[in-house]
């Protein structure tokens, strides 16, 4: 019932859109009727465009995400546990963090050329920061008593990290990872739209420039679906992972 109510507005709008396009017999280079979009989408699935382009985008986004969030995780633990390193890095982090990843596209093209390397590097750069900042906050927010406990029990550094710090911060790291994943898709598609001849973003640009609004809209729709599916998957994993044992630990962003 709730779903039905939620679907009401978009469905009505789609019908109006379709009816409007048909009654006025619009022939446009920038607009397409929903039915035309569905047909273009279906054809793109059939000829393998969707699968190939999605594979390219996801490959760049996920490898970049793994590199960026992995480095962010490690560095946040290091600066969380070794205050001198935190003081040493603080200025550099504050200066580099606000730089938008897309502003680095020209530099990345100059140094790495077109292709996966450039796109992966930019995604890694963009996803590194949320994980580092959120992760660092999570580690500095660990209850002092848990750190005391690890000292009283004389846990080794490795045991302290694996048995206390990582489990205590995992829910927050997971939230950071969800944010980073959204960022990874945004940056990957942006890089493809702006420059890189790869992936869904490039297909979207090609469709727009070759005056195929139906395919263009189909690609926009598809990007939205991918983003939604990835987030839903991670949300599901988050509930499964932190549901029973750490009800109080589940942190929402």
């Amino acid at each position: 019932m709730k779903l039905l109510k939620g679907a009401l507005l978009p469905v009505v709008l789609l019908i109006l859109w379709e009816v409007g396009m048909r009654t006025h017999n619009v022939q446009s280079d920038s607009l397409a009727a929903p039915s035309q979009i569905v047909v273009a989408f279906w054809n793109a699935i059939l000829d393998g465009t969707i699968a190939r382009r999605t594979g390219e985008t996801l490959r760049a986004a996920l490898i970049g995400l793994a590199l960026g969030s992995g480095c962010g995780l490690i560095l946040s633990i290091v600066i969380g546990l070794v205050p001198p390193v935190a003081r040493l890095m603080q200025f550099s982090i504050e200066v580099l963090r606000p730089v938008p990843a897309v502003a680095l596209i020209p530099i990345a093209i100059l140094t790495l050329g077109f292709g996966y390397g450039m796109e992966i590097s930019l995604v890694a750069f963009a996803t590194f920061w949320p994980v580092l900042i959120y992760g660092h906050a999570a580690i500095t927010n660990i209850d002092a008593q848990l750190i005391d406990l690890s000292r009283v029990l004389r846990l080794s550094t490795t045991a302290r990290i694996t048995k206390i710090i990582l489990p205590a911060t995992l829910p927050r790291f997971f939230v950071a990872f969800r944010l980073a994943m959204a960022v990874s898709l945004i940056v990957a598609v942006t890089v493809e739209i702006a420059a890189n001849p790869l992936g869904i973003g490039n297909e979207l640009m090609t469709a727009a420039q070759s005056l195929h609004p139906d395919l263009m809209f189909a690609m926009v729709l598809w990007i939205g679906l991918i983003g939604w599916a990835l987030n839903a998957g991670l949300l599901f994993a988050q509930r499964r992972l932190f549901g029973p044992a750490g009800g109080a630990l589940t942190v929402q962003p």
């Binding site: 848990l146 005391d148 406990l149 048995k163 489990p167 205590a168 044992a245 750490g246 109080a248 630990l249």
Partner: peptide, 29 residues
């Protein structure tokens, strides 16, 4: 040889470990 029992039990036990798991921590250590 010196063991420390903390004031705030809600923060002195690992919430992601069972009672047995929490006792186990001292043995793992």
């Amino acid at each position: 040889e010196i063991s420390f029992m903390f004031q705030d039990y809600s923060k002195a036990l690992l919430p992601w470990r069972t009672a047995a798991g929490n006792v186990s921590l001292a043995l793992e250590a």
